[in-house]
Simulated scan of single mutants.
Amino acid sequence: MSTATAPARGTSHPHVPTSRREQKARRMDRSSPLWAVLAWVVGFLFVAPVLWMVLTSLHSEEDAATNPPSVAASLTLDGYRAFFDSSPAAPLLNSAGASLISTAIVLCLAIPAAYALSIRPVRKWTDVMFFFLSTKFLPIVAGLLPLYLFSLNTGLVDNIWMLIVLYTAMNLPIAVWMMQSFLAEVPGEMLEAASIDGAGLIRTLRSIVAPVAVPGIAATALICFIFSWNELLLARTLTATVAGTAPVFLTGFVTSQGLFLAQLCAAATVVSLPVLVAGFAAQDKLVQGLSLGAVK
């Protein structure tokens, strides 16, 4: 007659998890493929419109206008030829100049302001942050008439510098909010060491704060550049033939003669390239800045 031997004290059954941590780890291992598939599906949903735009830009106007669209239609570069034949250099340069200059000005103003609100906080700094945020409460369309009348009376209609000033004012509150959260992560010990060494404000910002906050600065600069590059309402209202930007130029493909869909998609693809290039060039810094802040 055989007898069952009880397991020794302190040992566990090999098929039973020994702790809640093991159970959680096993559940995560089983669910990780599902999360991977879900991530690919969501990523494809975001990329699909862009891929469709690129594919449509390579079709003829007849094939692009079919309903339902013809995916297997023959490819052609006629849309890109028509785009480059319409002299897009001036609008692209206007967009690049307004976006780059306004972004540089925004960073020059936002970094010292964020420094004062995070590292060297002033009295009632939360009220200051709320004031910056409150400037975004009013829709831009509500200020179009005053802005147009001001531009008209000062001779700044169809002037690229008017757009630079407006883009700077538009992006500065966002930049201050972003940079404040990034600069709040700068270690205080580094600032104390710089102060002991006799570093002034400018040197501290240039030698201590800026290198540590590079991811945050890159993320802020890229977002401000995208907002300025894609802005249409102000540019459409305050510019004409001289200072027209790339988004205004795109609207020229929607005429009373009809919608030139292939040409519009080709133009939109070319206009999107600077933003895509900037995003790929700064993707490492952008991910660090948006996910972790300056230092964790």
Rank of each mutant, 00 (worst) to 15 (best):
V122D: 00
T126I: 06
D85K: 14
S118F: 04
A110Q: 07
S99W: 10
S74W: 03
P69I: 06
A98P: 10
P69D: 06
V106M: 12
A110W: 05
A96D: 01
C108A: 15
F130H: 08
A64T: 01
G97E: 08
S102H: 05
F83N: 03
H59Y: 06
R120E: 09
T76L: 06
T66Y: 07
S134M: 11
A90P: 05
S57A: 14
F84W: 14
P91H: 13
F130K: 09
A89R: 13
P121F: 06
T135N: 08
L75I: 07
S134W: 02
L75R: 14
D78R: 13
L93W: 10
Y115Q: 04
G97Q: 10
L92D: 01
L92N: 04
L58T: 11
A96R: 03
L109R: 00
S102E: 04
A89K: 10
E62T: 09
A65R: 14
A90K: 15
D63I: 10
V106C: 09
S70Q: 14
A72T: 12
P68I: 04
S86Q: 14
M53S: 08
T76S: 14
G79K: 08
L55P: 01
D127C: 10
L77A: 12
A113N: 09
T66P: 00
F83K: 08
R123D: 09
A113P: 09
A110Y: 05
V71I: 14
Y80G: 05
R120F: 01
T103W: 01
L107T: 00
V106K: 03
A72M: 13
L58F: 13
M129K: 11
V122I: 13
S87A: 15
V71E: 00
N94M: 06
F83Y: 14
A98H: 03
L58P: 11
P68Y: 06
M129R: 12
W125Q: 12
T103H: 02
L92T: 07
I119H: 03
D63L: 12
C108E: 09
L109F: 05
T135D: 06
L133P: 04
W125I: 00
I101D: 00
L93P: 01
P121K: 01
V54S: 07
A65G: 10
D127S: 14
S87F: 15
A65W: 07
A82G: 09
V54E: 11
L109I: 03
L58I: 06
F130E: 09
I105Q: 00
D78N: 11
T103N: 03
M129I: 09
L58C: 12
G97I: 12
L117R: 03
V122A: 11
I119V: 13
L133I: 06
Y80A: 07
A73R: 08
I111H: 00
L92P: 01
N94C: 03
A65Q: 13
Y115T: 07
V128N: 05
T126M: 10
A64Y: 04
A90T: 12
L75A: 13
L92C: 02
M53N: 03
A110N: 06
L77E: 01
L55F: 04
I101F: 09
P91G: 10
A72D: 14
I111Y: 02
F130L: 15
T103M: 07
L75D: 01
S134V: 00
A89M: 13
S70T: 10
N94I: 00
F84A: 05
P112R: 04
V71G: 00
F132N: 02
V128T: 13
P68H: 06
A72L: 15
